[in-house]
C-alpha cells in the first residue's frame, strides 16, 4: 500500500440551524466589538495627544506630538537615512533572535539528552538567568568589540537562557507513559526525541518565540544604547542627547510597529501549525 491516502473529511459535527446561525452571528459581533474598541482606544490616545500638545496643555518639547512624529518620519524618509537605521536594527534583532532561539533550543536538547550534565549545569543556569545582562555590557564590548557584534551578543545573552530553561521544561514535561509507549514500540532515544519529545514541545516553542520577539528587541536596543553608530536605539539616544524628542518618539513608534509585525509573523506561524 502506498503511503498517500485519499483525504476523507470527517462528517460535520454541528447541524446547521437558525440557533447555530444566531450563535455564529453573536461570535462575529463580539469580535467586531473587541476590534472596534481597540481602534477607538488607539485613535483616542493619538487624538488626545495631538489636542493636548496643540493647545499647549502639555509641552510638545517634552512629549512631541503625533503630527510632529509624522513630519519627522516624512523628513527621515525623504533624506533616506531611516531605512538604514531600520535595516540595521532589524538585522541585529533577527540575527540575535535566531541565534538565541536556535542556540537555546540546542542547549536544552543537550541537557535533556544528558541528565547528569543537566544536574551539573543547573545552578549555573539559574545564576545566569537571574543575572541582569546589562551588567555584562562593558565586558561584552571588551570581548567582541563595539558595534553590531556587541549588540547581537547582548541580544543573544538576554534571550538564550530563558529559551534554554523554557524548552528544557517543555521537554521534561512530556508524559512519562508516552515515553514508555515509545519504548514498548522499541524506539531508540533519538526516535523518542524526534517523534515525541520535540513535536510535543511545539506549543511551548511557539510561546518561547513570542517571548523572544519582545526580549530580542530589548536586547538589541540595550546593545545600541551601549555601543552603536546606527540603528533605532542609536537614534533614540542621539535624539535625547540633543533634546530632539520628535526623533526619539518617531524611533519609538517605529520600534513598536516592527515588534508588532514580528509578533504577528509568529502568530501566523502558530495559526498555520494549529491547523
Amino acid at each position: 500500500m502506498k503511503n498517500k491516502l485519499k483525504t476523507v473529511k470527517p462528517p460535520k459535527i454541528a447541524p446547521y440551524s437558525k440557533a447555530h446561525e444566531r450563535y455564529l452571528k453573536k461570535l462575529r459581533n463580539d469580535k467586531i466589538f473587541v476590534i472596534s474598541f481597540q481602534v477607538v482606544i488607539l485613535f483616542t490616545f493619538i487624538g488626545l495627544w495631538e489636542l493636548l500638545t496643540a493647545t499647549k496643555v502639555i509641552d510638545p518639547f517634552f512629549v512631541s506630538s503625533p503630527s510632529r512624529v509624522f513630519n519627522m518620519f516624512i523628513s527621515l524618509v525623504e533624506d533616506g537615512t531611516i531605512w538604514r537605521h531600520i535595516g540595521i536594527t532589524l538585522l541585529e534583532t533577527i540575527v540575535g533572535f535566531a541565534i538565541a532561539t536556535l542556540g537555546g533550543t540546542l542547549i536544552a536538547i543537550l541537557l535533556w539528552w544528558n541528565k547528569r550534565l543537566r544536574r551539573i549545569l543547573e545552578p549555573y543556569i539559574v545564576v545566569l538567568n537571574s543575572l541582569p545582562k546589562i551588567a555584562l555590557g562593558p565586558i561584552i564590548i571588551l570581548w567582541v568589540g563595539s558595534g553590531m557584534s556587541a549588540i547581537i551578543t547582548m541580544c543573544v545573552l538576554i534571550c538564550i537562557v530563558l529559551t534554554t530553561i523554557s524548552m528544557l521544561n517543555a521537554f521534561n514535561s512530556c508524559d512519562a507513559d508516552k515515553i514508555q509507549l515509545m519504548k514498548s514500540m522499541h524506539a531508540n532515544k533519538f526516535q523518542i526525541f524526534w517523534k515525541l519529545i520535540l513535536p510535543n514541545a511545539t506549543d511551548e516553542f511557539i510561546s518561547v518565540l513570542k517571548i523572544n520577539v519582545g526580549m530580542s528587541w530589548v536586547g538589541t536596543i540595550m546593545g545600541e544604547y551601549l555601543s552603536s553608530s546606527a540603528g533605532l536605539g542609536y537614534l533614540i539616544v542621539y535624539g535625547s542627547q540633543i533634546f530632539k524628542i520628535d526623533l526619539v518618539m518617531t524611533s519609538t513608534v517605529l520600534l513598536c510597529l516592527l515588534a508588532a509585525l514580528m509578533y504577528l509573523a509568529i502568530c501566523l506561524i502558530q495559526k498555520w501549525h494549529s491547523r
Binding site: L181, M182, M185, K195, P199
Partner: peptide, 19 residues
C-alpha cells in the same frame, strides 16, 4: 496516548515508522 499532532493514519503506522 495518541499523538495529537499526528493524523489517525500517522498514529496507526507509528510502529512501522519506528522499526
Amino acid at each position: 496516548h495518541l499523538f495529537e499532532w499526528r493524523t489517525i493514519w500517522q498514529n496507526v503506522i507509528l510502529g512501522i515508522e519506528l522499526n
